[in-house]
Each structure stands twice: as structure tokens, then as C-alpha cells.
């Protein structure tokens, strides 16, 4: 009964190098190489140090100024995480509702396109006028920036169900909740997560933009202060810290994705 010819499985072609070391080594070498090039390049070409400090100089500030960097790092992180969480909590259910009711999709479409087209950063002063100089305008702008990629991907994700799959679940006598829990939600998850990863990058951008417009804390606020004193080294340190924050939060998101979606691990 067994069919040996049919049974031989065609395994998914995977990107395999001999070991993890061999896989991670080249990109790490690229990073180290760029830093070395920067370090010695600025000496060779005699670039003015007060405009472009060498890595060793501003990296040093992570030690000497660790208190102020850590304080502003955590202030920015707090706003990014909160704004991201609020945006996600609204965008995913709204995406589900829009995907579920075609009339809602049809009627809301022009509105969504309109708001999506506005470059969100130009609304930053408005939030300051509305909400003052505290945390709230920063959280609001972060949430608004994060909102649209997650909303659009949620709509796409929840819409991308093969209708014949619904026939299968109906023939099992599935309740609407069961169809959602067992089929629709997990099917949409990879697409929603792609939107969340995009949203995380926007969240950091949104937060630092709001800090530029009006805030007394946060990495962008620190950069503005440092600029006033022509402290380019501190500016570079803060830019690096912002990049680290983005990478850290995206990394956490990737970890959650891997944990939630084991079937995509070797993609």
C-alpha cells in the first residue's frame, strides 16, 4: 500500500551553511570592518574631529555619560513601547472588523487613504498644542505613526482566507469563534507581524520626532541639547543609542514571532 516513489518527501530547500559560526561570522566581520575603516579613515583623511568623531571617541561617552544616556534611553523606550502597544491594541481589532464587514471596508476606505497619505511627522506640533509638553503628545504621535502599517496589514491578514477553507470548517460544525481561533487568527498572524515589525521602526521615528518638537527628556531631546553645546561626540552616542533601541525592540519582536510561529522558523 505504501508508495515508495510518492513517499519520498521533497523537503523544503533550506539555506544551510555548515555551522552557526560560519553563518554569523561574515556579517559580524562587516560591522567590525566598517568601524575600523571609520576609526582610521578619519585620521588618514584628516577629517575635523569636532565634526566627525572617531568611534573610539564617542563610544567612550557611553562610559563617561552613561547616566544621562541611560536616563534618556529609558525615557524614549518607555514612550515607544507605550505608543506601540496602544496602536497595536486598536489597529488589530479594527483591522479584523474592517476585514469582516465589506461595507465597512468600502465606506472607510477614502478616510483611511487620506490619513495614511498625511506624513504623520508634520502633525507633531499639533499634538503639542493639544496635549502640552508632557508624555502624552509623544505617546500620541508614536501611536499614530505605528497605527497604519499594523492596520493595513491586519486588514490584509484577516482578509487572506481561502473561502474553501471556510467550507472545511463549516463542515466540521465550527462556531464562528472556533473558526477565528483555529483558522483565521493564526493564518493572519504572519502578515500582522510583518506590519508590527514595520510599525516598530515607525514608532521610534514618531517618538524622536515628538521629542524634537517639545520634550525635556528622551534621546532626541538629548541630541538637541548636545547640539547647543556643539558636543558632536554626545550627539553620535545618542544616535547610536537610538539605533540600539530600535534594534533591541525589533529583536524582541522577532523573538516573540519565532516563539509564536514555530512553523516559520526555517523560512
Amino acid at each position: 500500500m505504501l508508495a515508495t516513489d510518492v513517499k519520498s518527501p521533497t523537503m523544503s530547500p533550506q539555506f544551510h551553511l555548515s555551522s552557526p559560526l560560519a553563518r554569523f561570522m561574515p556579517p559580524v566581520l562587516v560591522v567590525i570592518g566598517s568601524l575600523i575603516l571609520w576609526e582610521f579613515g578619519s585620521e588618514w583623511f584628516e577629517l575635523p574631529k569636532y565634526l566627525l568623531p572617531a568611534p573610539s571617541e564617542f563610544m567612550n561617552r557611553f562610559v563617561t555619560d552613561r547616566g544621562v544616556l541611560a536616563y534618556n534611553f529609558s525615557a524614549t523606550a518607555y514612550v515607544v513601547i507605550l505608543g506601540f502597544a496602544i496602536a497595536t491594541a486598536i489597529a488589530i481589532p479594527l483591522g479584523l472588523a474592517i476585514a469582516s464587514y465589506p461595507s465597512l471596508n468600502h465606506n472607510l476606505f477614502p478616510l483611511i487613504v487620506f490619513f495614511e497619505t498625511i506624513p504623520k511627522t508634520i502633525t507633531a506640533p499639533l499634538f503639542v498644542v493639544w496635549l502640552g509638553f508632557g508624555l502624552s503628545p509623544r505617546i500620541a504621535l508614536t501611536a499614530v505613526m505605528t497605527f497604519f502599517p499594523i492596520l493595513l496589514n491586519s486588514i490584509a491578514g484577516f482578509s487572506a482566507i481561502n473561502p474553501r477553507l471556510n467550507y472545511i470548517t463549516r463542515s466540521m460544525g465550527a462556531t464562528p469563534w472556533q473558526s477565528f481561533r483555529f483558522v483565521r487568527f493564526p493564518s493572519a498572524m504572519p502578515i500582522i507581524f510583518a506590519g508590527m515589525k514595520m510599525g516598530m521602526v515607525y514608532a521610534v521615528t514618531g517618538c524622536v520626532t515628538a521629542e524634537f518638537v517639545g520634550a525635556n527628556e528622551g534621546l532626541a531631546a538629548l541630541i538637541l541639547q548636545a547640539a547647543d553645546y556643539m558636543d558632536v561626540q554626545l550627539m553620535f552616542a545618542a544616535i547610536f543609542a537610538t539605533a540600539m533601541l530600535g534594534m533591541l525592540l525589533t529583536g524582541i519582536l522577532l523573538g516573540v514571532e519565532r516563539w509564536l510561529m514555530p512553523w516559520r522558523r526555517d523560512l
Partner: peptide, 8 residues
């Protein structure tokens, strides 16, 4: 089409 759930 097999209509299997990719996540199972």
C-alpha cells in the same frame, strides 16, 4: 487544493 493549515 489541500487546504491544510500552514501553521499546524
Amino acid at each position: 487544493d489541500h487546504l491544510l493549515l500552514e501553521f499546524r
